[in-house]
Structure formats: C-alpha cells, structure tokens
Design a binder for these strands. Structure first.
Lengths: 297, 297
DNA sequence: ACCTGAACACCGTTCAAGT
DNA sequence: ACCTGAACACCGTTCAAGT
C-alpha cells in the first residue's frame, strides 16, 4: 500500500470499487456541503500542487474546512480516497479519437486496413504520458492499486481494442500491449518526477540537466557515461530539452510500431502456405495479460 | 521525495553521493559495531521482508539493537539511507556477460557484427527485471532519486554500450535505450507489486488472478474487457501464470529488438547512395538521454 | 445523518546531554 | 567519537460523544 493506512488491521477489501460503503452524500442536505465527488476533486488538486508525500487526511480536511474525522464518513481509508483520485484523473483522457466500444469483436481484426491503429496508438500513448506528467503522483498509485475504476477500465479497454486491430497474432497481443504501455508508464514516471523537481526548485529543465550532470561528474570513475551524455547534448543543436524529450518519446513509439509491423509480417510469411488469418486465436501458448490493469494502465 | 523527510527544511543536497558526510565508521572501534555498510545491509533486508511502507528509522534501529538517533551519526536523512540501499541492490546485477568497459568508443559501432547485442540486451533487461521483482521497493525509489551511485552508473554505462553496438543511428539510440529500459521498469514494477501482494495474502499467482478478475466483474459495464481476458486465460493451455509473464516479457523484448533492427535497416537504405556509416553522429537533431539515470535505470 | 474531540500508536528529525 | 532521552511537529484511524 502506498499510504501508511496499513498501520491498523482491517478486513482488507481489495479496492474501493468493490463493495465498500456506498458513495454517501448526493442530496444537498449536508451541513458542510461535503460529498465524495467534492472530496475527490479537492484531493486531486492538493496532490497536484503539493505532491503525494505532503498529502494527508488532516491537510485535506483543513482545505475543506472540516475535521479530519469527518472524511471517514464518506471514505473508509486514505487508500480508498487515493484510488478514487486516481480513477478521476483517468477520466481526463479524451478517448473520442478511438472507435466506440463495439459489441462484435471481429470488426477490426483485418491485417492492415489503413494506418489507423498507428495513429490511435500514438494518441492514446500520448494521452497517457500527458496524465503521468500532469499528475506525477498517479505513478506510484498505478503500481500499487488494482486500478479497476470505470475510467481506468475504459482506458484499458481502448488499449486492448487498438492492439487487437494491429493484425498482430493474438498470442503476441498481450506482450505488445505491455511493451507500449509499460514503456509509457516508465517514461512518464521519470518525466513527471523530473518536471516536478524542476518546478519545486524553480529551475528550467536545461538548468536542471546542467546541475545533474555536474553532480554525476563528481562521482569518480564514470567519465565514459558522462562523455556519451556530453556528446548528445553538444549535438542536439537548437532543440530545447522539452523538445528532446518529446522527440525521444515519438521515436521510441515508432520503434515499437515498427516492431509490431515486423513481427506481424514475419508471422504472416511463416504460415503463408496455409491461408489462415494471421490472428487465428487458439494456440498452445496464448499471451498473458497481467490482469493487473497496471499492465496496460 | 519518497519518505516524509521533507517535513523539515534542509540544505537539500541532491543526493547522498554528493558531498554528504563521509561514510563514517570503518575502524572496528564502534561500540555497537555499526557502520554504513552494515546499516545499508540491514535496511535492504528489512525493505525486502516488510516493504517500503513499514520501513522506518525506528524499526531499523530496533533491528540493529540501537536507538533511532544513533543512525543519524552515519546518515543525514532517511532519504540518504534509501539511496544507499537502492544502489546496493544494483550491485547484485551480474554485468560480467557484457563487454568490459573499453576506453575507445569506436570498437562496437559496426552495423551488425554478430547477434551479440541482442543477447546482451536480453541478459541486461532480464537482470533488471529480476531486481525489480526481488526488491519491489526499488521501483518508487528509482523514480524519485537521482540514482547516481556507482552501481547504478555501472548499469547505465553497460546499457549505453549495448545500445551503441546495435548499429542504430546515434540520434535514435537514446529513444531505444528508453524504450527498452522504461518498458522493463514498468513491467517489473507491476510484477513486483503483484508478487508481493500474492505473498502477503498467501495466494498463488493463479488464485490472485481469479480473485482479481472476479473483482473486475463486479464493476458493471466492462464485460468486453473481461471477455478478452477470459479468452486469453482459456487459451493458455497448460502454462502457469508465471510462465505466461515470462513469455510475455520475452516476446515484448523480441518486439523491440525487431523494431531496432527494422529502423536500422530503414536508415541504412535511406542513405545507401552515400557510403557514410549508419551512425554518423552529428545531426541537427540528436536523441535525448534524460540525464536522469532513471531513464535507463 | 453527519460531524467532532480526545486518544492511541505511530512517524522523521533536532538538540542538548551523556560516556 | 559515538550514542541516548526528551521533545517537536507531525501521521492514520478508532471510538464515544455531540447535534
């Protein structure tokens, strides 16, 4: 668990989304105008401005003009509240660029109908990265919780649908999903922390780099590592650090898209003797999806 | 910061590795037999067995048979201690399969000399994944700290060297490094948490999946997501959950290796008119390396 | 139905004091 | 040089009590 909520023993429900207390409040009769939505909203705002480490039930209560204990009327534990905040943030994703949820699973499974899935993948990955950068605190939460709120599931569902439409054999789709979204998760995590630290220190990204590289230089015996970095910095021309990060992200995505295409093609030519569809789904070895939505989220 | 150490204001050094107090202790004159190495060692053990959330200076002190305040003789803050523990764990990596650190940068830059870099990449990525699974607590730390301890830098240096030997144009190498190791970071993070949660709940991975999927089923409106998972589970045959994860990891790596090969080939044919080396390094747009070792680590 | 005060069992860290 | 006790300013959560 991310918070220290485990200091006390408790029935240990797996997630807020499973049979916890009903979302109390709704009718406007509340003395303090509190309800789950409002609490969640302010939680997100506080986490954005002050970070996960400084967030506390007492701090939140103060912000809402109420005692810390009042919050426990609406929420069982701090962890529950963090789960709510996490899913709320996933709601910011604009999934409109993606196909609507269809009832039939067989619509998009053709090998290479248009370049659509590439753009969809780039859009979704970009949105996810944006979330991780705008709200750095979600990163540890994603790793920790089951992540089965409605908005998170919508995201995972969209990702699944896109990967299904790549033409990649079914038994590799789980791996492709993991490759792309775990990469974005890792990158977004680092970028999020990086930008937060810059903001907190009142530095630009450029200034931070100089500082960090100077720091690394003080650790003896690793001149080679530094040399490589210097080379890259020197050669980057007029690009800002921001642009470098952006471009690296896109190149990495291109690399994975190329990988998906190549492996799809390899598979197609491997059974070109049969005229079976490249994604015949039954096989002795199917790909794993971790079940953990963190896998895709 | 990962710990609550920021509750007090402090000069805010960037890392333990930079001009902190010298690693006290060494001579055997200590009344309690304490020194940095021993403290770090026990810290790692406690983090492994009880997790980051339960780790505290007081708990550690108790384990060492000493008051919490004694620790501050050897270490400035809890964060410093966590940085030490993090780097210690990177020391477990066996980097022997990789080429020795060479002084000349031009040795391995040929386009495609042997299949070596593929195996090296798989070995290093596998080792990193193993670390994240064996010590789930390092994941948030990697995202948080500068990560410039000697063992971490050794790891980053090795990763750089491998990517340099792929034949990929220099301006894409940063992205490739990010793609592979951020992916492993993301995957390892989720797998680490997953296995820890299973262990804590006394469940097998299989049991946990059933539980988690049943849980997801309770959230109305996402039958499609579940259907896909069911399909995958049904088709996986005799494979254990463990084996599924393992194979997904390897397929994802294959996918990225295929991506690197494809992009290298594309680049080579793009300037096949000139006989320039594919990694001529100067360009208007060089790839970024975040400077943050978290980028590769 | 909703909110509070006091209390419990914790934190990281400082500081003056001991040996 | 190394370690301690007491203290400060915090935590999440419980529980009995208020309105």
């Amino acid at each position: 668990m991310v918070s220290d909520a485990d200091r006390t023993k408790r029935p240990a429900r797996m997630s807020v989304w499973l049979g916890g207390k009903a979302p109390k409040g709704r009718k406007a009769g509340q003395p303090s105008g509190l309800d789950r939505d409002r609490i969640t909203e302010v939680t997100v705002r506080l986490l954005d401005t002050e970070g996960l480490a400084k967030f506390s039930m007492r701090r939140l209560a103060a912000e809402l003009g109420v005692t810390a204990m009042s919050l426990y009327w609406y929420v069982d534990t701090k962890d529950d509240l963090l789960e709510l905040a996490l899913d709320a943030v996933f709601g910011e994703l604009d999934l409109s660029k993606e196909a609507e949820r269809g009832d039939d699973t067989d619509t998009d499974t053709d090998t290479d109908t248009g370049a659509d899935w590439r753009d969809e993948l780039r859009a979704l990955a970009g949105g996810y990265r944006g979330l991780l950068i705008a709200h750095p605190w979600i990163s540890p939460l994603i790793g920790t919780y089951l992540n089965i709120g409605p908005h998170s599931l919508e995201f995972v569902g969209t990702a699944q649908r896109i990967v299904r439409s790549t033409g990649l054999p079914t038994r590799w789709q789980g791996a492709a999903l993991g490759a792309v979204f775990q990469f974005v998760y890792g990158l977004g995590t680092v970028e999020g922390h990086l930008k937060k630290r810059c903001a907190d220190a009142g530095m630009t990204l450029e200034e931070y780099y100089v500082e960090a590289m100077g720091a690394t230089r003080e650790v003896a015996g690793f001149e080679q590592v530094l040399e490589d970095l210097d080379e890259i910095m020197a050669a980057r021309g007029s690009e800002t650090a921001e642009e470098m990060l952006e471009r690296d992200f896109e190149v990495a995505l291109d690399l994975m898209i190329a990988g998906i295409e190549t492996m799809t093609a390899r598979h197609a030519e491997a059974d070109s003797d049969a005229d079976a569809e490249p994604d015949e789904s039954a096989g002795t070895d199917e790909p794993a999806v971790t079940g953990e939505s963190g896998e895709a989220a």
